[in-house]
Design a protein around this nucleic acid. Structure first.
Lengths: 193, 193
DNA sequence: TTGACAAGTGGAGACTGTCTCCATATTTTG
DNA sequence: CAAAATATGGAGACAGTCTCCACTTGTCAA
């Protein structure tokens, strides 16, 4: 797993401009709750041709990933900070609570993560894999200090998070999401020896 | 919540025949792993016209629900049996373990439940609601005997199950799904007073 | 039985959104 | 500055979905 931002070929000037315009417009629309715009229309809105849109982002998901890549990276960074600041078990709890909190006010991210987690297919799910890696680290550290059980992996926690992401538009979202985190954390805690 | 099988109007003989043919063919295809057939083509395969298909099942989801309604009902019935046979906490565990076990060999059901849980919209999600009710009962009984905490509702557990259903085609599905159930059960258990 | 009315049918074709293709335009390079 | 490389846009091919209605089939009272 080498570099991934500074990957490969240096885009031509106009190409980069268009790509950025596309992402900017998408971010704007997503923020306004508009997720199901006709793809061709979206190209018009961003001021580029259909072909250009498709060349840069072959699918809706690719676009969504690009839009939220930054935000996701920020979350992963936060996890690293927590990990060097707090005891392992607190870092884990803090991260998961913060995760839900963040999703609650960023529907687009929840939506995107739900999609990304569903498609385990390599390249596209790069963002989801990064999240998996972070959780793996958090978990491993807590296991090492003996505060949590060692028989569940990051995949298990991710599956629970998947449920949380997928339910982004339920009326009882917040309550239930918090509940799931509570359950996961309590369930992870080692039962007295 | 009145009756729902013997609801409303008595379908005409040929109509019922067509409806049954549709469900039968869908079941057959689903069992063979074919979920994304063109809807019109499916009508042909079942030996009816496109219009007839759409009249009986306005959407793919409606068809899927009809196909799995029976199976879902069976699961709910099982829950009731468990509830009168075992202590409340064992009934809950047994049901959840069995749930995963069943999903593991019935991809179509997992897929359908994931969709149904995602669309909270009343009529269509009738099946999902039934599942919710059953879990609510199981949970309430266990809470009453004081073996599990009382601060998480059925919605929370459903959210975790949603994650399980949505991941039906991941390579590590079984391991992770079992892990989630373990976490949920351990998390529910009352911490020593 | 039968006639008349209700209920249901099927499939042509309208419609909607996706995606490709390539003649043209822009940028980079030597 | 010309040639080569790179990128553009949008018309139109395509693929599914879904509607509409002239026609068929079933039901039921007489």
């Amino acid at each position: 797993m080498g570099p991934h931002v500074t990957d490969a070929k240096p885009l031509r000037a106009d190409a980069r401009r268009n790509r950025d315009a596309l992402i900017a417009k998408a971010r704007e629309l997503f923020a306004g709750g508009c997720f199901n715009l006709r793809f061709d229309d979206f190209a018009k809105l961003a001021g580029v041709g259909t072909g250009t849109l498709y060349r840069h982002f072959p699918t809706r998901e690719a676009l969504a990933e690009a839009v939220y890549r930054e935000e996701l990276t920020a979350m992963c960074d936060r996890a690293h900070e927590l990990q060097v600041t707090l005891p392992a078990d607190e870092a884990l709890e803090s991260f998961l609570r913060g995760f839900v909190d963040h999703l609650h006010s960023h529907e687009g991210l929840a939506r995107t993560l739900a999609t990304l987690m569903a498609t385990q297919s390599g390249a596209l799910a790069e963002g989801a894999q990064a999240l998996g890696q972070v959780i793996d680290d958090l978990l491993a550290a807590a296991v090492a200090t003996g505060t949590i059980r060692d028989d569940v992996g990051a995949g298990t926690v991710m599956m629970a998070l998947h449920g949380i992401c997928a339910a982004y538009d339920h009326p009882t979202y917040r309550t239930d999401a918090d509940g799931v985190i509570t359950l996961v954390l309590a369930g992870l805690r080692r039962t007295a020896p």
